[in-house]
Simulated assay, not measured.
Amino acid sequence: MTIEQQKPDDSLLDIHYLGDKDLRKSAKRVSKIDDSIRELARDMLQTMYSSNGIGLASTQVGIHKQLIVIDCEPELSTNAPLILINPKINYYSQELCVMEEGCLSIPGVYFDVIRPEMIQVSFKNENGRPCQISATDLLARVIQHEIDHLNGVMFVDRVTNDLDLTTKLQEKGFTRESVKSLK
């Protein structure tokens, strides 16, 4: 799929923020990959780029379909963005790594999160073809983060330091009550 990777003036879709009940709903499998799904993916990419993000799940824009878009290097127009429809992680490495995460649905809030270092994920692309990839580093992290969104989970649910979490969320106008800890 080709999409201009320059930052447009406005987002096409409205991003929902922590506290919005839509973010806690699980997404449904996409049964038919057609032009409407491809258009949604394009709109999501444009929204992600305009918000300076590197990943976006459909649930973040209030659409409960299993669709995520990712571009870990948006400044490199030679790299095509990833579009994952009905993604499923088939393998998680036992090796874990800690990396800082943020989220377009919780602007200005960043925390270290522990996740598996490597994953294998299967999905369908925008043409409906089955695909499988192994991912490490930032790509593995972004895929896990976005698949969490499809399951109603947000990265702050994985943060273990309650005091720090509460303080940083309040500083940005969010409440701790919106977090569903996975401890």
Rank of each mutant, 00 (worst) to 15 (best):
M1S: 05
T2S: 15
T2P: 12
I3G: 01
E4R: 14
Q5G: 09
Q6D: 08
Q6G: 06
P8K: 14
P8W: 13
D9A: 15
D10S: 13
D10V: 14
D10Y: 11
L12Y: 05
L12F: 06
H16C: 03
L18R: 02
D20M: 04
K21S: 02
D22F: 09
D22A: 05
L23Q: 02
K25P: 02
A27M: 02
K28E: 14
K28N: 11
V30I: 15
S31G: 04
D35W: 04
D35Q: 12
S36H: 07
D43A: 07
Y49S: 03
S51H: 04
A57Q: 10
S58K: 07
T59V: 05
T59W: 01
T59N: 05
Q60K: 08
G62D: 14
I63V: 14
H64L: 09
H64Y: 06
H64M: 07
H64C: 07
K65R: 12
Q66N: 14
L67R: 04
I68A: 00
I70F: 06
I70D: 07
D71N: 10
C72V: 13
C72K: 13
E75W: 13
S77I: 10
T78Y: 10
T78C: 09
P81L: 10
L82E: 09
I85P: 00
N90I: 08
Y91Q: 07
Y91E: 04
Y91C: 01
E95G: 00
G102W: 12
S105Y: 08
S105K: 03
V109H: 00
Y110I: 00
F111E: 11
F111K: 14
V113L: 05
I119F: 01
Q120V: 06
S122R: 00
F123V: 08
K124M: 12
N125F: 02
N127D: 13
N127C: 06
R129Y: 04
Q132D: 04
Q132R: 06
I133V: 15
L139S: 00
R141Y: 10
R141E: 11
R141D: 04
R141W: 08
I143W: 00
Q144W: 06
H145I: 11
D148A: 04
D148M: 05
V153W: 05
M154P: 01
F155S: 10
F155V: 13
D164Q: 12
D164G: 03
L165E: 07
T166K: 09
T167Y: 07
L169C: 02
Q170W: 15
Q170E: 14
E171V: 15
K172L: 10
K172A: 15
G173R: 12
F174I: 13
T175Y: 07
R176P: 10
E177D: 11
S178L: 07
S178K: 13
V179F: 00
